[in-house]
């Protein structure tokens, strides 16, 4: 009885302490104005991504070939000299139209969907898989740790992009052949509905957990010898409980920071893959596709690259500042 009581009390103290740790961090984050604004931008982007179909004035695929490369009159100042000689002025497109007469604004709004989905799904996948794998490896230690980490080293040896490209090539071939039924069919149908995004998520997620796993293991190695873990062990808490209740909440901080800072990388990966024809299927817009299209007539119609590039830059900056803010918030020692 005494033992059980002690355990319950212990739990209460620990959980109170935990909450205050998070609350401390939140308070520190609130004081960082740049991070706060960035957070607001991220929330706004999520909002745009969800309601893109309601906000966009046109469908992203509708083309009006006669209005190709249209520029609104109030943006002519952004155009190169002599632009009035060739540009089609058309104010029905708020930010102008691309080479097929598709509305740039609508395509950029829809592009938010692709980019943010990649950011969310890829980081969730890599965070979940990486944390669990790394924590188990670090906690169990010994031979198991050695084996699990050597596997990570082995996977780390492959250049990341080549693995993604191989996976995407394989997935695309699979999608072309089609599946007879079962799980594969469900997956492929969903993929087709999402314009080829699902397989891209899986490919990016599958290669990104490795770094997270290493980070998680390193954190767990240092935490598992700490007094509170000792204490938990002494009162007879199970391994699962120690891992999920005591270790993971403590190592989560640095992991979240690392993940936030990795998000711009995922967005760029998507852009690169779409550029090389291994990303989303046209006409689904993504910022990567729009930028690679825009760069071809950078000197004639700069608007076509400025719009998606601005969206990409703002998003990247927002995630970076937010990441920085979170790092300072979770680990105040680094801020000083």
């Amino acid at each position: 009885m005494a033992v059980a009581n002690l355990s319950a009390e212990d739990e209460e103290i620990l959980s109170r302490r935990q909450r205050s740790l998070w609350r401390d961090s939140l308070a520190r984050l609130m004081r960082n104005r740049l991070a706060l604004i960035s957070g607001a931008v991220v929330v706004l982007l999520v909002f745009v991504a969800i309601f893109a179909d309601k906000m966009a004035p046109y469908d992203y695929a509708t083309q009006d070939l006669d209005a190709n490369n249209a520029v609104p009159s109030y943006l002519m100042w952004l155009m190169p000299k002599h632009a009035e000689r060739y540009a089609k002025i058309d104010n029905s497109f708020l930010l102008g139209a691309d080479y097929l007469g598709r509305d740039l604004l609508s395509r950029t709004l829809y592009g938010t969907r692709v980019s943010l989905s990649i950011a969310v799904v890829a980081s969730l996948v890599s965070l979940t898989v990486g944390t669990i794998y790394g924590t188990i490896s670090g906690y169990v230690g010994g031979k198991v740790d050695n084996l699990m980490m050597r596997l990570v080293d082995f996977l780390y040896g492959f250049p990341f992009l080549i693995v993604v490209i191989l996976l995407q090539t394989y997935f695309k071939a699979l999608a072309r052949v089609g599946a007879e039924g079962g799980f594969a069919k469900v997956l492929l149908d969903w993929n087709a509905k999402m314009g080829g995004m699902l397989l891209l998520f899986i490919a990016i997620g599958l290669v990104n957990w490795i770094g997270m796993a290493r980070l998680a293991r390193g954190q767990v190695l240092s935490y598992k010898e700490k007094e509170f873990v000792e204490a938990a062990r002494a009162v007879g808490a199970s391994h699962t409980r120690i891992i999920f209740r005591h270790l993971i909440p403590n190592v989560m901080g640095p992991l979240i920071v690392a993940e936030t800072l990795a998000i711009p990388g995922y967005i760029f990966t998507e852009a690169f893959l779409s550029f090389s024809g291994l990303g989303v299927d046209p006409p689904t817009p993504s910022w990567g596709i729009m930028i690679s299209e825009g760069v071809q007539n950078l000197r004639t119609y700069p608007l076509q690259i400025l719009v998606p590039a601005a969206a990409l830059s703002i998003t990247t900056l927002a995630f970076n500042f937010l990441g920085d803010g979170l790092r300072d918030a979770f680990d105040p020692r680094m801020a000083e």
């Binding site: 490369n69 190169p80 002599h82 632009a83 060739y86 540009a87 007539n297 004639t300 119609y301």
Partner: peptide
């Protein structure tokens, strides 16, 4: 290039 055609023809 395709994208520069408009400008080349009017410059």
């Amino acid at each position: 290039p395709l994208g520069e055609m408009d400008r080349v023809k009017s410059d």
